[in-house]
Design a protein around this nucleic acid. Structure first.
Length: 579
DNA sequence: TAGTAGTGACTAACATTTGCCCACAAATG
C-alpha cells in the first residue's frame, strides 16, 4: 500500500467514526495521521521495513494504535478494525459526505430513521418527500439536498493551478477596476500556490461592498449564484470553476486576508496561539478577550507582529511546522524569483522548441538572466525531432553565433536533455556528453515500469558522471498522469551523494519535484534547480510557479544551483567536468 | 487517538456566516 492509500483508509475511518458520532479527538487523530502520511516525503513501506511498529510511531501524529493499524495493513492488506467498523456503519455512508450541505449528523439521521445508506436511496427518499418528515428537516432542506446531489454529478473537482491562476488574474483585474476598491488580492490555496485549487478565493478592500458584489456576480461568465450575503458572494462560472469574494474595509484588510489565505489548519494554530495571549483572532480583528477591545490590522504583517511572530509567507501556511519555526525565529529564507540568475532547461528549434537559440537567449536576457542553457532533446525513442550526436556538433556553431550576437550580456550554455532510455542507458555515449556545458537527464518513456526497474534507470543517470541535473524527476503531469512509481528515498539519497541536482520543473502542469519531495530534498541536502523547460520564449514566464513550489518545500537560494550567482554556478559545472 | 506528564489521567480544534427551523448542521479559511 502507498502512503496515499493508507491516508485514504484513515480518512475513511474518520468519516465513519464521525457519522457514528465518536468523540471528535479520535476523528482528528485519524485525519492528522492521514495528513501526516501524505506530507511525509518518505515511503511508509521503507520505514516499516526498517523498524516496524516502533519506527512508524516516529511519524508525527502516529501513535501506537495507528502504527499497529499501518503494520496490519502493510502485512495483510486488510484491517480487522475497519472490517468491524464497516459492519457497524455501512461504508457507503462515507460517500454521502461528498454531497454539499450534507454532513455526518444528517447522514446518521437518514440512516437510522430511514435506512438510507447510498446516494440513489437518498435521492429517492428526497424525491418522495420522506426527508422533510424528520426532525430538523423541512421542504427547503430536502430541496437543498436534492440540488446538492445534482451538483455533485456536475462537480469538476480541484482545478490545476495552471488554469486557476490566469483566471484569477482576470477576476482581480475586474475587481480592481470597480470604483472605490482600494485593493484586491487572491487568497486561499491559490495564494498559497498549491498545485490544485478547490475554488478561487478573492479578497477586496473597499468601504462600500455593494458595487463590488454587483460587479462580481453580474459578470456574463457567471453561471450560477451559489450564495450572496452583504459582504460575501459565491458563484459558479460557465467554465465550471467556482469563486468567492469577500469585501472588508481597508483598515481590517490584514486580518481578513490572513483568514482567507488559510490554510484552515494554519489558522487554527494561529488562533490557538492568540488565545494563549488573551486575544481572539477572527477575519474582522484581533479582540482582547477580557475587555472586548478590537485591534484592527490593515496588513498581515501587523496580525503576525501582534502575535509576536514574523510574517509567514503564504506558501508555508500549511501547518507543517511553520508556526513553530516562526516562534523560534527559525523561518527559512525562501527562494525568490529575483534570486535566479540562470534558466537551465530550455528548448530551441533544434528539437521541439518553437524559437531559435538567439530568440530564446534574448528572451532570457530580457527577463534578467545572466545564463541560459539550451538543452534540446536527444533523439531517443519517442522524442520527436531530437538531436542526433552530429546535430549536437552542428548546433554548437549556432550557439557560438548567438553568443557573438549577444556579446557578454548573457551566457549561452551548450546543453542537452538526454533521454534515459527504457533499458536504463542514456541516449548519448559518454564522449558526446563530456563535450557539453550542462547535461540534464530525463525520463519520458516507459514511465509505468515497475518500481525497481524505473528507480534503477534514474539511479543510473544520477551515477553517470556527466549528468548534472535530473529533469522533472517523477514524470507526473497534473492532473492526468500520476508520478512514476519511484523509490524516492533511494533517488534523493543518490542525488545527495552524487551532488546531482534534481529539477523543480516550473511548468504548472508538472511542478516536479513537488513541494513535499522538495522539502525532503532540502532536509537531505540535495541540490535543486528550478527551470521552466520553456519551448517558446513566453514560457520563461512560468518560472514563478516553480519558485512557489520551491518555497512550499522550504527551499532557499542556497539549495538551488541557479540561484547561486553566475560565477559559483559556472564553477560548479566546470568542476563537475573535470572530475 | 496522540502526546505528554508521569505510570492512570488529562488535554487537545478557532471563529465566523448561512440557511432553515426554531436550535443547529454545514461550510468557509
Amino acid at each position: 500500500m502507498t502512503n496515499k492509500e493508507l491516508a485514504e483508509t484513515f480518512n475513511l475511518i474518520a468519516d465513519l467514526l464521525q457519522i457514528k458520532g465518536e468523540v471528535i479527538y479520535k476523528i482528528l487523530a485519524y485525519r492528522k495521521a492521514a495528513e501526516s502520511l501524505t506530507n511525509l516525503g518518505r515511503d511508509v513501506n521503507a520505514i516499516w521495513q526498517e523498524g516496524g511498529v516502533r519506527a512508524l510511531m516516529e511519524i508525527p501524529g502516529v501513535g501506537k494504535a495507528i502504527a499497529e493499524k499501518i503494520d496490519e495493513l502493510l502485512s495483510t492488506g486488510e484491517l480487522a478494525y475497519l472490517n468491524r467498523l464497516t459492519a457497524e456503519v455501512p461504508p457507503t455512508l462515507a460517500g454521502l459526505m461528498q454531497v454539499p450541505d450534507l454532513g455526518p449528523k444528517k447522514i446518521k439521521l437518514f440512516w437510522k430513521e430511514l435506512g438510507i445508506t447510498t446516494l440513489p436511496e437518498l435521492e429517492a427518499a428526497a424525491r418522495a418527500g420522506r426527508l422533510r418528515t424528520l426532525p430538523g428537516m423541512g421542504a427547503k432542506s430536502e430541496a437543498r439536498i436534492l440540488a446538492g446531489i445534482e451538483s455533485l454529478a456536475r462537480r469538476t473537482g480541484r482545478t490545476p493551478l495552471e488554469k486557476a491562476w490566469p483566471f484569477a488574474q482576470q477576476l482581480l483585474a475586474l475587481l480592481r477596476a470597480v470604483p472605490g476598491v482600494v485593493a484586491a488580492e487572491a487568497a486561499g490555496s491559490l495564494r498559497r500556490m498549491r498545485e490544485t485549487v478547490g475554488d478561487i478565493d478573492l479578497l477586496v478592500a473597499a468601504t462600500q461592498p455593494g458595487p463590488v458584489m454587483q460587479a462580481f456576480s453580474g459578470q456574463p461568465s457567471v453561471a450560477r449564484l451559489l450564495g450572496q450575503g452583504d459582504t460575501k458572494s459565491s458563484v459558479e462560472f460557465t467554465n465550471g470553476m467556482r469563486a468567492q469574494v469577500w469585501v472588508h474595509p481597508p483598515e481590517r484588510f490584514g486580518t481578513a486576508l490572513q483568514y482567507a489565505t488559510g490554510s484552515k489548519d494554519h489558522n487554527v494554530r494561529l488562533r490557538e496561539l492568540a488565545l494563549k495571549q488573551g486575544l481572539s483572532l477572527s477575519e474582522h480583528a484581533l479582540t482582547r478577550v477580557d475587555t472586548g477591545e478590537e485591534i484592527l490590522c490593515a496588513t498581515e504583517e501587523e496580525v503576525y507582529a501582534r502575535l509576536g511572530l514574523p510574517w509567514i509567507p503564504p506558501e508555508l501556511r500549511e501547518d507543517r511546522g511553520e508556526v513553530e519555526a516562526a516562534m523560534q525565529a527559525a523561518l527559512p529564507r525562501l527562494l525568490s524569483p529575483s534570486d535566479l540568475i540562470a534558466e537551465l532547461h530550455t528548448h530551441s528549434t533544434w528539437s521541439d522548441g518553437k524559437a531559435s537559440i538567439e530568440e530564446m537567449a534574448r528572451a532570457a536576457r530580457a527577463r534578467g538572466y545572466k545564463i541560459i542553457a539550451i538543452t534540446d532533446h536527444s533523439h531517443g525513442l519517442g522524442i520527436v525531432r531530437g538531436m542526433r550526436p552530429e546535430d549536437v556538433r552542428a548546433r554548437q556553431a549556432e550557439i557560438r553565433a548567438a553568443q557573438a550576437a549577444l556579446g557578454d550580456s548573457i551566457r549561452i550554455l551548450n546543453g542537452v536533455e538526454v533521454e534515459i532510455k527504457a533499458d536504463g542507458t542514456l541516449d548519448y555515449p559518454d564522449e558526446v556528453l563530456a563535450g557539453l556545458d550542462i547535461v540534464i537527464a530525463s525520463l519520458h518513456v516507459s514511465l509505468r515500469q515497475p518500481r525497481r526497474q524505473i528507480t534503477q534507470r534514474l539511479l543510473n543517470a544520477i551515477h553517470n558522471p556527466h549528468v548534472d541535473v535530473i529533469g522533472h524527476p517523477t514524470g507526473r503531469q497534473i492532473p492526468h498522469r500520476e508520478p512514476a512509481d519511484l523509490d524516492m528515498d533511494a533517488v534523493l539519497a543518490a542525488a545527495a551523494q552524487s551532488r546531482v541536482a534534481l529539477e523543480i520543473n516550473a511548468n504548472p502542469r508538472r511542478l516536479d519535484l513537488n513541494d513535499v519531495y522538495t522539502r525532503r530534498a532540502v532536509e537531505m541536502g540535495v541540490l535543486l534547480s528550478v527551470n521552466t523547460d520553456a519551448h517558446r520564449p513566453e514560457q520563461l514566464d512560468l518560472m514563478h510557479f516553480g519558485v512557489a513550489t520551491a518555497r512550499r518545500g522550504w527551499a532557499g537560494p542556497e539549495n538551488v544551483i541557479n540561484a547561486w550567482g553566475a560565477e559559483r554556478l559556472m564553477g560548479w559545472l566546470e568542476g563537475r567536468r573535470e572530475m
